[in-house]
Write a protein that binds this DNA or RNA. Structure first.
Lengths: 235, 235
DNA sequence: GTCTATACTAGGATAGAC
DNA sequence: GTCTATCCTAGTATAGAC
């Protein structure tokens, strides 16, 4: 997207970055766990995700996010101090969702090949069910490379990269276990995790839900992907 | 990424788009095949590719391109009327390069599986050898989705999408031939071409040449990818 | 909480000197 | 051909009304 967090107004207050909406001076303090506030914040996130999916981070204006939301800038800026803030929080939510889905399978019971197949299917399901969030997640990966961020933002970015690394590591570990167990052929998991996740993440680029989509067509996609990728590893 | 052709100055002259640098009023006409001019134009393209690779299309300013080029805006705008123009021409060059590499293999001699493996290896080689161009090519795919372009640009974009489709079709055709020949298992090439090319295109996102890279490490990457993807199809 | 001004700048594009 | 100077809009972010 492509692209760095860069853009306008670098001169001014250097967009502080944090996960939670912060009270600003002169405003009554808000409980972060206030359910109504949380719901509103969540709606802003969903709108942003859809906007970023359609135009990409750099080309999406806060006005566009507000349009999708059916509101104006003011609402967005009430919950997030900057566009980068918004994106980072979105990325964080997406990564947490992914890890929550994958971690229990990776570290749970079952043979390595069984677990890997379930991880692949879970990842596909995430993409199909939560497309906007997953698109943002993929855009975030690309963003890591373009390092032009403020020091404060960099810290948040680093935490996201860690989460991303943990995600990859779960796949690498299960692949390695499978090789030891003799289920998978002798290959290099550190290298192969890239095309494996790449093949899955690529869905965020070509897949867009259509009126004609059925539960069956989605299952077809999931199974073709899983079979293709599993066979690439099996001995 | 980032992503649509959108941005500033939509109001004004609505950026005409074409492949060749056009003479402007009041300037002496230039031959498109003038070797010196071609070489200069090519240098602008290379600089733009490197800039787009690093920051993404939307976040790259013409000033940045000029910086990479070691010049100023003026030079860039002499060869290209707009940023979108520049990007499209870049994308066109990349697609031509890819098709020139793949087409002869796909339609040439050899068994389907032999040809497919050579196509995969050729594609990997392209990414490793021409990384900036390939990054732009992938960014272009993402751009197609965000349809916000002027009518004139849309026509050029459509031609690029056609090229992209031909590229995919070569892979689909060879996969289908392989199924008929019994070399590949019974699967759905139309669906599987996505993860196959996705796995390869994903390299443009994670691979960046490093000082420690050897010819051997690059061959390792290529062969792991090829083996992984081929085994996913073989019966 | 949300909206309506309003400030301020990065960056696309052009004109014209050289 | 390339550079410098300049124009002008889109878009980030804030202030303050409601």
């Amino acid at each position: 997207m492509s692209s760095d967090g860069g853009a306008a107004n670098r001169a001014r207050p250097a967009a502080e970055t944090s996960r939670a909406p912060r009270r600003r001076v002169g405003r009554p303090p808000r409980r972060d766990d206030d359910p109504a506030a949380e719901r509103n914040r969540w709606e802003v996130l969903r709108a942003a995700a859809r906007a970023f999916m359609q135009h990409g981070y750099a080309s999406t204006s806060i006005d566009t996010v507000a349009d999708v939301l059916g509101a104006t800038k003011g609402r967005v800026y009430y919950y997030y101090r900057s566009k980068a803030d918004l994106f980072f929080d979105l990325h964080r939510v997406a990564m947490e969702m992914n890890l929550d889905a994958i971690r229990p399978i990776a570290t749970g019971p079952g043979s390595p090949s069984e677990r890997l197949e379930r991880m692949i299917l879970a990842h596909v399901k995430l993409v199909l069910d939560e497309l906007p969030l997953q698109c943002v997640s993929v855009q975030g990966v690309q963003m890591h490379l373009a390092g032009s961020t403020t020091p404060t933002q960099r810290k948040v970015l680093d935490r996201l990269i860690e989460a991303r690394d943990e995600y990859e590591r779960h796949f690498i570990d299960v692949m390695a276990e499978g090789i030891v167990a003799g289920e998978f052929r002798d290959c290099d998991p550190r290298t192969l995790v890239k095309p494996l996740l790449g093949a899955l993440n690529w869905m965020t680029i070509w897949y867009r839900p259509r009126p004609g989509d059925t539960e069956e067509s989605r299952r077809h996609i999931a199974h073709e992907h899983a079979a293709f990728l599993m066979r690439g590893l099996l001995s």
